[in-house]
Computed example of a mutant assay.
Amino acid sequence: MAAGAFRRTAIERSDQRVAWERADQAFFAAGACHILAWVCRESYPERSIEVAAVRVAGDRQIFHVYAVWDGWTFDHSGWNREVDLLTVNAEFEGRPLERVGITVDLAGFCAEHHHRLPDRYWADPLPRARGYVDRHTPPWA
């Protein structure tokens, strides 16, 4: 499912508690996808999981972040092929997208792209993200 289907409302953008109270899939699709991607990578240190993002072609602003391993992605929809993630998001947005490899750490990404660090959420999103990762069976299992 496209990340854009879960975009935050005006109240969810202005009130961290309201945003926090959304269902896990909505929370990790829009507003905390970057947290989920880094937690996924940290959850499997024996795998060479990278972090990538998508943006509308030609735009600077990233709108969705996900983990990638061997052609598979992990985001709010669980494990899916990267081509499928890119296709569903491009179709939803109705515009071509660009994949962006992320080479900085979480703090650097947040500073560069104006995303929240874990301590800027209403509550700590790290345990919630770890639980979400644990509920999805990776493709190598």
Rank of each mutant, 00 (worst) to 15 (best):
E82T: 09
D134I: 00
V104S: 06
A30V: 01
L85Y: 07
E42P: 01
G101Q: 11
N89L: 08
Y121L: 09
F28I: 02
I62Q: 05
I11S: 14
G131P: 01
R47H: 12
L86T: 09
T9I: 11
V39K: 02
A30K: 01
R41V: 07
R81L: 15
A29V: 00
H113C: 05
L126K: 08
V18M: 11
R120I: 00
A32F: 06
L126P: 02
E21N: 14
R99I: 11
C40D: 10
W79F: 15
E93L: 13
R8D: 11
A141I: 02
R60H: 13
E82Y: 03
L117S: 08
E21V: 00
Y44C: 06
C33H: 05
A129L: 06
A123E: 15
I102K: 03
H34V: 08
D105Y: 02
D15I: 10
D75N: 15
A111W: 03
V51N: 09
C33R: 05
Y132D: 10
L117P: 00
A29Q: 01
G94D: 13
R81S: 07
L126V: 15
R22T: 08
T103W: 01
A123H: 09
D59P: 01
I35P: 02
I11P: 00
D75C: 14
D24M: 03
G4Y: 10
H114G: 03
A23D: 15
A123Y: 04
G4Q: 11
G78W: 07
Q25H: 08
V65E: 03
H64R: 09
D134E: 15
G71P: 05
G78S: 10
E42M: 09
S77H: 05
E112Q: 13
A30R: 01
I49P: 06
N89D: 14
R41T: 03
E42R: 11
A141L: 07
L97D: 05
P96K: 09
S14Q: 13
E91Q: 14
D75H: 11
E82V: 10
Q16P: 04
S77W: 04
V39N: 07
F27G: 03
I49F: 08
S14F: 03
S77I: 07
E93C: 11
T73M: 08
R95G: 00
G4S: 13
F6I: 02
G94P: 09
